[in-house]
Amino acid sequence: MIFLRYENWKGYLRYYPITSILLAANIMMYVVLLIDGGPNNALTLMKYGALTNIPPWNEETWRLFASMFLHSGFSHLLFNCFALLVFAPPLERLLGFWRYAILYIGSGLVGNIISQAYYNNLTNPTLSIGASGAIYGVYGAFLYIVLFQRNLMDDASRKTIYTILGFGIIFSLGVANINMAAHLGGLIGGFFLYGLIIRLLKRR
């Protein structure tokens, strides 16, 4: 099972530096939100980069990146950080540091671009934040591996991926205030980005 973690914290930092940086960035930005208005304050979220369909802020492209590191509450932060902590490390080891960083950020951007396009067509004002799009990009990469590189993953890990995706779809459809567009966009982005990366950016 590739998703079981046995490293101590020093080993984790050594083997998964990009994942560690992403975790630290999520936690740091949550602390910033707590200090400056709170993670449920719409004005605070807008200030630090939440996606919105409200003009003219919906045209600010920097929000596509910044919103990936904002979370609306401790449970939101905990859920995404747990997923990142447990499921991302095998992909970082497989791809290498910088190729993994490209996939993670790229998937998050794809998810947010699709999300922004969807919400721009709605009349009600919306805010969207969170690392879920990028994390679903990690799941999308593993889905590619499950389908086309089966020799890289054991049977138990393949079943885990199917279970995660199944619960993810149910969760995205059944829970209010979930950005399904970002989840689906990140999943698709991660799937295709992984395929491109392993072909175009060969690992030494």
Rank of each mutant, 00 (worst) to 15 (best):
M1C: 09
I2K: 12
I2M: 14
I2Q: 12
F3Y: 14
W9F: 11
K10V: 05
K10M: 11
R14M: 07
R14Y: 09
Y15N: 14
Y15M: 12
Y16K: 13
I18R: 01
S20C: 07
A24T: 00
A24L: 10
N26V: 00
Y30T: 07
V32A: 00
L33Q: 10
L33K: 08
L34W: 02
G37M: 05
G37S: 07
G37P: 04
G38F: 02
P39L: 08
A42T: 13
A42P: 00
T44P: 02
T44Q: 01
M46P: 00
Y48C: 08
Y48A: 07
Y48P: 01
A50Q: 04
T52P: 06
I54L: 13
W57Q: 13
N58P: 03
N58Y: 05
T61N: 12
T61H: 12
L64Y: 14
F65Y: 09
S67W: 01
M68P: 03
F69A: 05
H71S: 15
S72L: 09
G73K: 02
F74K: 10
H76L: 04
L77C: 06
L78D: 06
N80C: 10
N80Q: 14
C81F: 00
F82P: 03
F82S: 11
L84Y: 01
V86E: 06
A88C: 09
P89A: 07
L91K: 10
E92P: 11
R93D: 15
R93N: 11
L95R: 09
L95F: 07
F97H: 04
F97K: 06
R99K: 12
Y100D: 03
A101D: 07
I102D: 00
I102S: 03
Y104L: 14
Y104R: 14
Y104M: 09
Y104K: 14
G106E: 12
S107D: 07
L109C: 12
G111M: 14
S115R: 10
Q116L: 11
Q116D: 08
A117Y: 14
Y118V: 04
Y118A: 12
Y119T: 07
Y119I: 11
N121T: 15
N121A: 15
N124D: 08
P125E: 08
T126M: 13
S128T: 15
S128A: 14
A131N: 07
S132N: 08
G133Q: 05
A134T: 06
V138P: 07
V138D: 00
V138E: 00
G140S: 12
G140E: 13
G140V: 12
A141Y: 07
A141Q: 12
Y144E: 12
I145P: 08
V146A: 05
R150E: 15
N151D: 15
N151R: 09
L152Q: 11
L152D: 01
M153E: 04
A156R: 10
S157W: 04
K159N: 10
T160M: 15
T160P: 13
T160N: 15
I161G: 15
I161H: 13
Y162G: 11
G166I: 02
G166H: 07
F167A: 14
L173I: 11
L173D: 00
L173N: 01
N179G: 02
M180W: 08
M180S: 10
A182V: 03
L184T: 01
L184I: 03
L187R: 02
L187N: 06
I188S: 02
G189K: 12
F191P: 04
F191G: 03
F192N: 06
G195E: 13
I198P: 08
L200R: 12
L201I: 04
R204H: 09
